[in-house]
Amino acid sequence: MGYRTNELGYPTDLLHSRAVVERGNFALLPPQGLVKNMLPNFDDCEMTILATPKLGAEFVDYLCRVLPGGGNKAGFGEKGIETFLYVLDGELMVSDGEKTYDLTTGGYIYVPEDKTLTFENKSQKPTETFLYKKRYQFVEGLKAYTYVGNSNDVEGVDYEDMTDVDFKTLLPSDLDFDMNFHILSFATGGSHGYIETHYQEHGALLLSGEGMYNLDNNWIPVKEGDYIFMGAYNLQACYSVGRNAPLSYLYSKDCNRDVDI
């Protein structure tokens, strides 16, 4: 085990952290303090586990740095578990067991619950990825399917009629899928139009910029590299304050299903 940011030795100031963890409600996890984990079948991969059921999430998120020659050839996912991989930086060869795809920065693949995701870094540089898994919620007559794309090719739309907030949907918006991934980008001064309150959960990785995020009515500074978990009914909204880049983040959202009781 080691620290993802590779910080060694004593700090030059007091020990402190921007992390905030309210289990079952919300969490902010900055890069500093996150650890690298060794996991079975992830060869030459530096794994960092983010949201899990222990935090209150019904999904699991990871950061995965795939070193040259590394990957997962045994398969990520299992029967009943859907998976998603997004390339943050670099190149990766991925497969759903039937077809193989070459992904570059911004590329992603969704693999349904009856297949497993494999991947390998055949380049000469580390590839940074974001991984997700969740138990698929079955409905008779519906069945998800493999989907591959690149966020750079996805056309954004104005988010709720706000021209300075760009919204991208990465997976098809049909009932076969019980979740989706989106990218929201707020220009400086852009914000949500209201404080959201809903039962859907989110796991969000900040891709760029700086801002203030409202988590259960706590306004918390956030920036590129931070990870946010938002639990069911957690009050949530943000605004962008960065000068050099929009506040942009990749996030998951469960959808298209009734509530199990």
Rank of each mutant, 00 (worst) to 15 (best):
D13F: 01
S123R: 08
S95K: 03
K122I: 05
E78G: 06
Y251V: 03
L63A: 02
F177L: 10
R4E: 11
G225S: 09
P172W: 07
K73Y: 00
D44C: 02
H16F: 06
Y213E: 13
K143L: 14
V241C: 10
K253T: 12
M179D: 03
F138S: 13
E210T: 14
P11L: 04
T169N: 05
N37W: 01
K73V: 08
I228C: 13
P30Q: 07
D44A: 12
E120M: 09
G193D: 06
Y108D: 02
A237S: 15
N41C: 04
Y249D: 00
S95V: 05
V60D: 00
A74N: 12
T197F: 12
D216H: 10
V154M: 03
E128N: 11
V94S: 09
K54G: 06
D254C: 06
I228V: 15
F181K: 09
P40V: 11
E210S: 12
N25L: 12
L63V: 02
F138A: 13
L88F: 00
D258G: 09
I220R: 00
L28V: 15
K143P: 04
K36L: 14
I261M: 12
D161I: 01
L14S: 11
L215Y: 05
N180D: 12
K115F: 02
V87A: 05
V35W: 00
D61A: 11
T52K: 10
A19E: 15
L39C: 02
N37P: 01
K122A: 00
E91R: 07
A27S: 13
M38K: 10
N218M: 12
N214M: 10
G189E: 10
S151P: 02
P53F: 08
N217P: 02
G107D: 07
G56F: 04
Y145F: 14
E78F: 10
A187E: 15
Y62N: 03
Y110F: 15
Y145R: 15
V259H: 07
P68M: 07
G69T: 09
A144R: 00
P40H: 05
D161L: 10
E224T: 14
V20G: 00
E224Y: 05
E128D: 14
D176W: 00
T104S: 14
K73W: 00
L207S: 06
V111N: 03
P221G: 11
T52A: 10
E82K: 10
L131F: 08
K223V: 02
Y147P: 08
G77T: 03
V87F: 01
S191C: 11
F229Y: 15
L50V: 04
D174T: 14
A27E: 07
R23I: 10
E201F: 09
S151I: 08
G211S: 06
E98R: 08
I195L: 08
L55H: 03
E113F: 11
A245W: 05
F84Q: 06
S95N: 09
Y101Q: 12
S191M: 14
E120P: 01
L88I: 07
Y227G: 09
K134D: 02
N121M: 04
